[in-house]
């Protein structure tokens, strides 16, 4: 069953690649277009879920029928800084009426960063092949002036049973250290801005979560997440273009990949592209620079030489 669906989306991706413009793969692949979604709003088997970072955005207008997942609390453990426990995730998925055979479309604000993060957590707990991302997210939906609703859409709870967390999708500090110490041959893709990567700045202006050190994980390669999307509407570039883009920096799927950024949310966006669109073996490192950058004594590369509070 799983193999069959997997084959299905591989075929879908290939077809999509042939058509080269996103619209053609419609419901087949891991991305759906705004147009397809609007046509399928009345489909009772479809579950739409918004994962946005800005509070009140969903409530003041969401895609009709969409459910709300609050990124700040629903998919995380706020005190221990971890992804939601299996019990918490199971309760959430049941409440949203999700199960392994329901088609779920995720979307959100900020270029779908948090929706992609949601797709990653969903995947870890066994919801993968039927989980799709709305290409262009909220931004494109709004740009196209498509309808929004403010009323809640009641759904029937499901009997979803959570799977054992899929360890291969999540990189932990030890996995990253293994790469640095050459005990593993994975490639590390750092999707932060060039200035963060080089260590000129520790974090973009206005962000609270910091590291004490500047720079990047030794051996990692840099390709900012935004290079993979069309600036105008936030849609993801065609698969063949993406394959070439990543191959240029040595990410071609021949080796396992670890995606990383500052706190792991922008890197989920690149994780989604590499894992779901290109079919590479990818783990997202949610500890990211706020974890690695803060560990005493671990080797780093800091070309800019910025030192915390150094005067």
């Amino acid at each position: 069953m799983a193999g069959k669906t997997r084959l299905g989306w591989v075929l879908g991706s290939v077809l999509g690649a042939l058509a080269s413009m996103g619209a053609a793969w419609a419901n087949g692949g891991p991305l759906v277009t705004t147009e397809w979604l609007e046509q399928n709003l009345a489909n009772p088997t479809l579950r739409i879920v918004e994962v946005s970072v800005e509070p009140g955005l969903y409530e003041r207008g969401h895609i009709p029928g969409a459910q709300n997942v609050v990124w700040h609390t629903d998919l995380v453990e706020t005190v221990s800084r971890d992804i939601a426990t299996p019990e918490k995730f199971q309760a959430l998925a049941r409440k949203l009426g999700l199960d392994k055979d329901t088609t779920v479309v995720l979307y959100g604000d900020s270029n779908n960063w948090f929706a992609a993060w949601g797709a990653w957590v969903f995947d870890i707990y066994g919801l993968r092949d039927n989980v799709k991302l709305l290409d262009g997210g909220r931004k494109k939906w709004e740009l196209e002036k498509r309808p929004v609703a403010t009323n809640p859409a009641p759904v029937k709870a499901s009997g979803f049973t959570v799977s054992q967390p899929n360890r291969t999708l999540r990189a932990r500090l030890t996995d990253v250290v293994n790469v640095v110490e050459k005990k593993s041959d994975a490639s590390i893709l750092d999707i932060r801005s060039p200035d963060e990567f080089s260590g000129k700045i520790i974090a973009p202006a206005g962000f609270q979560e910091l590291a004490l050190r500047a720079g990047h994980i030794p051996g990692s390669v840099n390709l900012p997440w935004a290079r993979a999307v069309n600036q105008a509407d936030g849609t993801i570039k065609p698969v063949e273009e993406l394959r070439k883009l990543y191959a240029e920096i040595g990410i071609d799927g021949s080796k396992p990949i670890i995606t990383t950024c500052r706190i792991g949310e922008r890197s989920s966006h690149s994780w989604f592209i590499l894992s779901r669109l290109l079919g590479y073996q990818v783990a997202n490192y949610d500890g990211s620079w706020t974890e690695y950058g803060n560990v005493v004594g671990l080797p780093i590369n800091n070309p800019a030489g910025t030192v915390w509070s150094g005067k």
Binding site: P55, G56, Y58, E59, V70, T73, T150, N151, P152
Partner: peptide
């Protein structure tokens, strides 16, 4: 009533 159907949890109505 529309935004937060159940007020008894840990959540506050947004903003």
């Amino acid at each position: 009533g529309a935004w937060l159907p159940d007020p008894s949890g840990a959540r506050l109505p947004p903003t």
